[in-house]
Simulated scan of single mutants.
Amino acid sequence: MSTGAGIDYSVWDHIYVSDDEDVTSPYVDTSSLFRMRHRARLERMAEFQHSGEDLENNFAECKRLLEKAQGRLKELEEEGRNEEEEAELKKVQAESVLNIKAVTKEKEKIEKHKTFVETYGKEIKHFGLLRRWDDSQKYLSDNPHLVCDETANCLVAVCIDFEIDEKHALMEQVAHQAIVMQFILDLARTLKVDPRGCFRQFFSKIKIADKTYQDAFDRELELLKGRVRSCAQIRMDSAMKELEEEERQKRLGPGGLDPVEVYESLPKRSQYRVQQNGLHQSVSSSLCKEIQKSFDEKNIQMLQIAINKLDPEEGKYHLRRCIDSGLWVPDSGEGDDDDKEEDEEEEED
């Protein structure tokens, strides 16, 4: 079989391959055996095919269940987000309600204070001007409704008004009574009782007070005076600024400029050249007084001479500011000529 060129495979050209069906026993009916084996093979093939179909069906069912689970998970996530959004919304609404309640409570407090002051304003001021401990105690005994926070706040407001009116002695007297009322309220909070039921206890204590208690009272009084002076100064400064702004708005000229500001911003000095003895010389001129004097005397010729001493662009700038502020109201003809000149210059540019 073997040659020098290699293995000879020709011996396998006519080989016969048979399956185990060819091997039969002489005691067995071959055709019956073949049919039985063929039927068994078909059954196995059918079973295998059925198993494949079941597998495909199971796979499809699993895929469907997976998609359903994913869809449900997405719904739960959406519901979770919605719940979070709803919880956040409820939180915001709760905060809004609390803010509204706080604002409403503050408005009610302000309204209550306003009503109380309108009703008992005279009695409060009368208490604020009392000097003796016994007089203060008797007055509060006759008017126990004054022992409250509204009275203390009102006394502080009266102090500020007196300080603004430069009635310093009255401010200090009312400040003393404001501290008296504050100490009564502090004592009530400490004892956890109604302040109307403990103001007598305060007066009994202050009349025989030791140095520590008296020093604390005097220290609080000085602090209050300082706060009253500071607050009064802030209010006066604010009122002054508002008044100055109102006056400034009234002064504004047709171009929206303040004549006072324009008047004070006029050029101080200017360099211009003149010809003298055939030579050009630089001359320094003080223009501020000249221009201001021309406005004071309403001398248009003097104003024109002073403006002509400026650089043309600078002169035009200040002249326009004077017109916009109302310092100078040119004749209609002059105004038209100026507008025409400006239009021509813009066209040339």
Rank of each mutant, 00 (worst) to 15 (best):
D237Y: 12
L42A: 11
P144K: 04
L223G: 05
C62N: 15
P312A: 08
K74H: 14
L33N: 10
E47C: 10
M236V: 03
C231Q: 12
E21V: 01
I7E: 11
S285C: 14
Q292T: 00
I100C: 14
K340V: 00
V11A: 15
E79G: 09
K250N: 10
C231N: 05
K309R: 03
V17C: 12
H126Q: 15
Y263C: 06
S265L: 07
Q276I: 02
C62V: 05
A216I: 04
K268P: 03
G335V: 03
S31R: 12
T115F: 15
R269E: 08
S2V: 09
V117K: 08
I164F: 15
G71R: 10
S31K: 07
C159N: 11
D134P: 08
R219G: 08
R273S: 02
K316V: 02
V97H: 14
Y9G: 05
S332P: 04
G4D: 14
H145N: 13
S270F: 06
K101F: 01
D19V: 03
D19Y: 10
N308T: 00
K293G: 13
R235F: 03
L66S: 14
D339Q: 11
R132D: 05
D311G: 09
N277M: 10
A306V: 00
R251P: 04
A175I: 00
I323P: 01
E342K: 02
N99R: 12
E47W: 05
G315P: 07
Q214C: 12
V158E: 09
A5E: 10
V329E: 08
I184H: 02
K241D: 07
V97P: 04
Y263D: 05
I110K: 14
R64I: 02
P144L: 09
K167W: 01
D338F: 14
S294D: 03
L65Y: 13
D186L: 06
A69T: 09
F295M: 05
K207W: 08
A40F: 04
E220Y: 02
C198D: 02
L252N: 07
D29E: 11
R37A: 12
N82T: 04
K122Y: 13
K109P: 02
K90H: 08
I100V: 06
D134V: 11
I234D: 15
L98T: 10
K250G: 07
D349I: 07
E88G: 05
I323L: 04
